[in-house]
Amino acid sequence: MTTHATSSGEPVGRLLGWLGLRPGGSGIAADPGAPPDGNPSRVRQVRADLIEAIGRFLLDNDLDVSPANLVIAHGAFSGSNPRLARQVAARAVTHGGVTQQWIDEICGEEADPKGQADLDRLMAKLETNLEAFQTRSKAAHQMTRDYGSELEEHLTDLEQLQKTGQIVSNLADLAKAMLERTRKAEDEMRKSEDEAKSLRRNLARAKRDAEVDYLTGLPNRRAFEALFDRHYREGKETPFALSVAFCDIDNFKAINDIHGHDAGDRVLKVIADTLAQISNDNCHVARHGGEEFVMLFRGLTPREVAKKLDDARERLADRRLINRKTDQPFGVITFSGGVADVFGYPEPRAALKAADEALFRAKQAGRNRIEIA
């Protein structure tokens, strides 16, 4: 595990401060997932300990503060996912340690829809609160500015009347002090508005990142499923052909075993680029997980889709890739695919299953081929 001299102090404190909490205790409780005893201070302490443990975990291992990493860290440290906690603990003491690549690999295995749904609700609630804050802040900002302008007018009048006596002079001094405080309050409100805008931008970026596969740059499984549901609903209202396909790299484990994971990542990118070349507004490709990709074709029949994938498969097989670190050739890189007619099945998940089964038949038949369900 990679450690940092400063990671256990200030960064975690700043993280907790940003969340509106103070660092609590020396670490996570022995059983953070257990219900607190009902004491409000105890509830707050448990929450603070959980946040501190998550913060330390992300910082000590140089992990991004991304939605996926937060879900994994919460599952491991809250006690809600004991198996995941055991995986993290075992990995931490290995030579490789906890890395972003390893976290991304187990993300696909965990596929915690409830955790993702909780994160979605949290992000939506944060957006709503930010909108309400900005609305109230703008109104208060305007009121403060108007009050300051009016006060400044009265101040001018008072200064002109200073010759009438010390009382008026004192009132003028008091008004000056009030005006200065008003201006400071206005500056603070402006800063708060700027911080809220920055937070909204970061939130929007986090939501985009949650739907993109970091390695290939393609949409991930989560983004594809939302897209699939939308096209399916539109196709029910205005009929059109809709086909789905699964593509899987042949003998990918052997590539990783022989050439290493870095070389395997390069092959993944090559396959992603190959499939992305045939994508457009009516053809969408996403990384489904591991070495598997999923594609959605609007306006094309399964036979037309199979032809497109066959062409892409042949172009890939004609390429001769070389491991840049060792100059050792990879050999012929191929993929297999399975295609299904979405509206040929009673519901969309059945079509996905049919395409996956067609992919399995392609593998069984010798790989490097496309099968139609």
Rank of each mutant, 00 (worst) to 15 (best):
L15M: 11
E193M: 02
V168A: 09
E291P: 01
A355H: 05
K307V: 15
R190W: 02
L155C: 08
G79P: 01
M178H: 15
H95D: 04
A226R: 15
V270L: 12
T99N: 02
E211F: 02
Q160F: 12
K236I: 06
E234V: 02
A111K: 09
L352I: 07
P329F: 09
R315G: 05
I249F: 01
A89K: 09
A90I: 05
V93F: 04
Q166S: 11
V46L: 14
F343T: 06
D229M: 10
D173S: 08
A117H: 10
R349I: 14
R208N: 11
L275I: 06
L151D: 02
P82C: 03
A48L: 05
G25V: 11
A340F: 07
M178N: 12
E234F: 08
Y232F: 13
F297K: 09
E127T: 15
A92L: 12
I51P: 01
D104A: 13
L63F: 08
A226G: 04
R361D: 12
M295G: 01
R56H: 15
I28V: 15
R208M: 07
A175E: 08
M189G: 13
L218Q: 00
S8W: 14
G27H: 04
L179K: 13
I271N: 00
F224S: 02
L174Y: 13
F57L: 09
F133V: 04
N39D: 13
R369D: 05
R222S: 00
M178L: 15
A172D: 05
Y214E: 14
Q328H: 09
N280D: 15
F77G: 03
G108W: 12
A85R: 14
H154K: 13
V65L: 13
R287E: 00
P36W: 10
M143G: 03
L203D: 06
A358P: 05
E180C: 11
A140T: 10
K184T: 13
P302G: 06
R222N: 03
E195G: 01
F240C: 08
A362W: 04
G299E: 02
T274R: 04
V46M: 08
K197Y: 03
V332S: 12
M295N: 01
L119S: 06
G337L: 03
N256I: 01
A185K: 01
L300F: 07
L179H: 14
A245N: 02
D31A: 15
V212I: 13
Q101K: 10
G289A: 04
K307Y: 12
P348H: 03
L309M: 09
L50A: 10
R201V: 13
T216L: 09
M1G: 14
T144N: 07
G115L: 03
A76T: 02
T99K: 00
G299Q: 06
W18C: 08
R324K: 04
A139E: 10
D341L: 07
T3M: 11
R361I: 12
K125W: 12
P239K: 12
A317I: 03
A286K: 00
R230Y: 10
A312T: 06
K363D: 08
E150Y: 11
Y232Q: 00
D49I: 07
F57Q: 13
A254W: 05
P32C: 15
I258V: 10
E234R: 12
